[in-house]
């Protein structure tokens, strides 16, 4: 079976490589992808039509904005699928043990049968387990870094139509910053900042922002995602409306992507209980 699989792979790979000989030369300006009106049109007209310097972003969020909306919907679906498949309720023991750490010495105390210490305690902090120690250096450095990471992520989102970047990348970086928080501290810390419901709302709000912009275009008399239709509403020229529409859309993407990243990590690391994780 394995040999068959390898043989099939080799056969297919060989065929694909063989056909490469039939391709137009790499970078040949006369080859169809470069010569055909599509690429030419994008290179020559993007700035006039959308006032967006980054052609990639313009194609992504405007010319083929519909694809991108569905890519975002894919992300949304992934989060929803993880929720649907992984989320569990009622599997936790009725009274879990709580582990507290003495902040000064690092000694761990396990309180059985759900007993707790005061959350306001300055000397003891609740931790997820005694295996993963609370590390002062890591947590402090991460706490220092995370705001900068998030700032950078916002920059990537907002500056997407001028420089490389956009909603996807920015959203992922934003999500990654929260994952860093979860890893450097523990899941509980993240959970307190971002309850599941809020994340879910954020997730949906992002994609609704995207499709809502598209739908609003329809309501204002354009086709779906025809940003020009929103020009009068926003008080800008149609070309400028494209640029602004792209910005809105990118923000929506970023929200959804960020929420998805956090949610998936949460569900995986807490085994679906959304309680205590790695």
């Amino acid at each position: 079976m394995k040999i068959l699989a390898i043989a099939l792979c080799l056969l297919l790979g060989g065929a694909l490589v063989f056909v490469v000989g039939d391709f137009p030369d790499w970078g040949d300006p006369m080859s169809p992808p470069n010569d055909y009106r599509l690429s030419k049109h994008f290179i020559e007209n993007t700035m006039e039509e959308t006032s967006v310097p980054n052609i990639v972003t313009a194609v992504l969020a405007d010319y083929r904005g519909f694809d991108t909306m569905f890519e975002t919907a894919v992300i949304f679906t992934a989060a929803l699928a993880c929720f649907f498949l992984l989320r569990t309720w009622g599997r936790r023991p009725s009274k879990p043990d709580n582990v507290y750490m003495h902040l000064l010495t690092g000694v761990h105390v396990r309180l059985k049968h759900g007993k707790t210490l005061s959350p306001q305690s300055r000397t003891f902090a609740r931790v997820e387990s005694e295996i993963l120690r609370y590390d002062l250096v890591t947590s402090t450095v991460c706490r220092l870094m995370i705001p900068f990471i998030q700032l950078f992520a916002l920059y990537v989102v907002a500056h997407g139509h001028h420089s490389p970047g956009g909603g996807f990348q920015g959203g992922v970086i934003l999500g990654a910053s929260f994952l860093l928080l979860a890893i450097s501290h523990d899941l509980r810390t993240l959970r307190e900042r971002f309850p599941e419901v809020k994340l879910m709302y954020l997730l949906i709000a992002g994609i609704v922002l995207y499709s809502g912009v598209g739908f609003a275009c329809m309501i204002y008399g354009g086709n779906f995602l025809e940003y020009e239709a929103l020009g009068p509403l926003m008080g800008v020229t149609p070309v400028m409306a494209h640029s602004l529409g792209i910005l809105f859309v990118e923000i929506g993407v970023a929200m959804t992507v960020m929420a998805t990243m956090i949610l998936i990590y949460n569900y995986i690391s807490s085994l679906g209980t959304y309680e205590r994780g790695l």
Binding site: R133, D135, V137, T138, V141, L144, M145, F148, S184
Partner: peptide, 15 residues
């Protein structure tokens, strides 16, 4: 940032 992150990452791994 490299100056901050790299040593603490090493530290975390050692830990």
């Amino acid at each position: 940032f490299v100056f901050m992150a790299s040593p603490s990452a090493t530290h975390a791994i050692v830990d």
